[in-house]
Design a binder for these strands. Sequence first.
DNA 1: ATCATATGTACATTATATTGGACATTGACG
DNA 2: CGTCAATGTCCAATATAATGTACATATGAT
Lengths: 262, 262
Amino acid sequence: MDAVLDEAAGKRARGLDRAFEILDFLREKRQALKPNEIAAQIGAPRSSVYELVNLLLRNGILEFTGGEGRVYLGRKLYFLGAAYENHFDFTRECEAALERLADETRETAQFCMLDGNKYTVVRMREGARPFRISTDVGQSVPIPWTASGRVLVSHMTDAEILAFIPPQDFQLPSGEWLDPATFLAEVRAAEGDGHFTFNSIVDSFTHCFAVPVMGDAGHAVATLCLVAPRADGLANREQYLACLKDAARRLGGHAPAQAKRA
Amino acid sequence: MDAVLDEAAGKRARGLDRAFEILDFLREKRQALKPNEIAAQIGAPRSSVYELVNLLLRNGILEFTGGEGRVYLGRKLYFLGAAYENHFDFTRECEAALERLADETRETAQFCMLDGNKYTVVRMREGARPFRISTDVGQSVPIPWTASGRVLVSHMTDAEILAFIPPQDFQLPSGEWLDPATFLAEVRAAEGDGHFTFNSIVDSFTHCFAVPVMGDAGHAVATLCLVAPRADGLANREQYLACLKDAARRLGGHAPAQAKRA
DNA sequence: ATCATATGTACATTATATTGGACATTGACG
DNA sequence: CGTCAATGTCCAATATAATGTACATATGAT
């Protein structure tokens, strides 16, 4: 995550940071790995990784699976995640919103959030004519690659945004570099309009729509998106935007559930 | 968790263990707390807790919520938990199994697992006549209090079981102490029968049924349960058990999804 | 047989993380 | 006003965690 190049070289890493680096890495890989492989691939000392993996195994944060001593994310993480989901109870309404969006538009609908300084699809509802969607649920994607990315950072200042997004994330999958100034202009447009749409820069045949879901703090905590074939998206642009904004308004209407007093 | 009384006194705690102790504590409380409150309630040094909380906040493992500097489990945990759920893809089939059980029996059906050395309800489907269920989804409960508890530890030896379950967990909610020998006998009965049923010892009006869901390793990784009014449960005992075993067989039939090779 | 690679374990060293305690701030309450 | 409790910050001391290195074993290629 924030460890692409860890600070300066030569420093010792803190156990906790290393541990979550391991967890994030396993999530990204989406498969069980041997401690040795983890160490090699994240560039951490083997002895440290073995130590941490054993600690995490003892805590149920990691589990042996896949044989050969391979480890993957553990049950405890599921329980903790379920507690989060239960507290900020967005899932049920979110599913309903996606369902309705998919019904009304027949397009693929997504609910997206930031994961640290990346963009990620939290939930997705396939449209009527499913095509190969470029990003799967749970994958971390550079913010500048997506329409939602513009919306999700629009509450920050330009300086904050540039400090927040890793510079290398402005390199698009095609290899081209997106000018940060262009990106910032699009962010400001999204802020003003309350939505952002563009022809996807990840693939060459879709048009993407993103609108903010407002949270307590008065800025976007998530987005609702549609991914449509280009012709289709352009033809129905106004209808699609209206559907999205309506759905987002309902989702964001009430505060994301304060802690229920015991 | 394993920190009810931390090893010997006078030792320093490892940051990682302390961190997960904080996470588990927040999950148990199911509400946002101030760092100061956390420190006081888990009996950890305030300076350590502040340090760790800040680290966890920076990683997205904790989040500010509820105002006044209170923190609760963070979005990152949701993402990690979702990755676990996705990998061991039990959710969809689990929901279906509970749905069918509830349809066939009209009773409350649960899917339960161990969380460390406690029992927890992972998913629940309310029955036709909902009554006050004593344990909510996600709450940690002593293993000896539940029918599922007998099933979930039945692959261990007697010695392993006694080492595994915290001694104080043999004290029932009524205050009475359950004789470990009695418990072990019930575990062995459960092992032989492939199920366990009893009048709940948590309340005085339900009868509980538990059957194992078998995993790769050849032992129970979870249970399917029914919670019925006592008269009802006794009257339909055989039918309920048949339903449960059928559902559990389908769930456990195939291995819990090896890692998909990349 | 010999070498190279992948994997896991053991241990001493030292950089540093955990901790206790001092300090500052706030609000409640008499 | 003074006092007490709750809360957050800062810092030095030292127990220890992260690391490098050596070692052990297995596997496969040459």
